[in-house]
C-alpha cells in the first residue's frame, strides 16, 4: 500500500474504526460514524490562531506560576498558596517522591508542552527546521498525557470547600490566570486533534521541499 493511500485513512482514537477522509467545507467537522468522536475538522488560519491562543496561555501560565493563588485568613493570620510554596513544603517535610512527581506533573510538563508548541508553530510558520519541529511535536504527544494542571485546579476547589467553614478565602490573580490557562487549553490542545497539526506539518514541508 502506498503512503498516499494510507494518508487517505483515519482511525478513530476511541473505537479504532477505520474511515476514509473526505474534504470538509468551511466550519465543518468529521465525526466517527460509530461513536461520534471528533476525527478532524476544517481549520482556517490554523497555525496563526493556535499560536495566538498558546501565547496567551503561556503568559497566563507564567502569571499562575509566579503569584499567589489563594489566601486564607484565620483569625487575622494570613497564609498564601503559590506554586513555590507547595514544592517547598513538600520537600521540607521530606516527601521527596511526592515532591518530584508534583514538580513534573504540575510545573515542568505544562511549561514544556506550551513552550514546545509555541516554538514548533513559529518554526512551521517560518517553514524552517523540519527535524526540530518533528521532535517537538513528538515531545508534546508524549508528555501531554502527564500534564495535570487541570486536575490541580480541581484540587484547589476541593481544598477550598474543605477550608470554607473555618477560614476566610481570598482569590488572587494567579487563580484567575489558572482558570484562563485551563479554558485556553480546552480551545487549543484538547480541541485540536494531533492529526490536524501533523497534516499541516506535512503540507508545509512538502511545499517548501518541492519549491527547492
Amino acid at each position: 500500500m502506498e503512503n498516499s493511500e494510507l494518508d487517505s485513512f483515519i482511525i478513530c482514537k476511541k473505537c479504532h474504526t477505520l474511515h476514509r477522509k473526505i474534504k470538509l467545507h468551511h466550519g465543518t467537522k468529521a465525526l466517527c460514524q460509530r461513536c461520534n468522536t471528533l476525527l478532524y475538522r476544517h481549520h482556517q488560519n490554523f497555525i496563526d490562531r493556535l499560536l495566538a491562543l498558546s501565547l496567551v496561555e503561556f503568559i497566563a501560565l507564567i502569571i499562575a506560576f509566579s503569584f499567589t493563588i489563594i489566601k486564607i485568613n484565620i483569625n487575622g493570620i494570613y497564609r498564601g498558596l503559590d506554586f513555590s510554596s507547595i514544592f517547598y513544603t513538600i520537600f521540607h517535610n521530606h516527601y521527596y517522591i511526592v515532591g518530584v512527581i508534583l514538580i513534573f506533573f504540575i510545573f515542568i510538563f505544562p511549561i514544556v508542552i506550551l513552550l514546545s508548541l509555541i516554538l514548533a508553530l513559529i518554526l512551521m510558520k517560518l517553514k524552517k527546521s523540519k527535524y526540530l519541529v518533528k521532535r517537538l511535536l513528538i515531545l508534546i504527544a508524549k508528555v501531554s498525557h502527564w500534564s495535570m494542571i487541570d486536575i490541580f485546579l480541581l484540587s484547589i476547589l476541593v481544598a477550598m470547600v474543605k477550608l470554607f467553614s473555618y477560614a476566610q478565602l481570598e482569590f488572587n490573580v494567579a487563580f484567575i490566570a489558572l482558570i484562563l490557562v485551563i479554558l485556553l487549553d480546552i480551545f487549543t490542545l484538547k480541541r485540536i486533534s494531533f492529526s490536524d497539526i501533523w497534516e499541516e506539518y506535512e503540507n508545509i514541508y512538502r511545499k517548501s521541499n518541492s519549491k527547492k
Binding site: L81, T89, I90, A159
Partner: peptide, 13 residues
C-alpha cells in the same frame, strides 16, 4: 491525583 494535590495544598495553607 486529586487527593495527593489536595493534601499538598492543605499542608501549605
Amino acid at each position: 491525583m486529586v487527593d495527593v494535590f489536595v493534601v499538598a495544598i492543605l499542608s501549605v495553607l
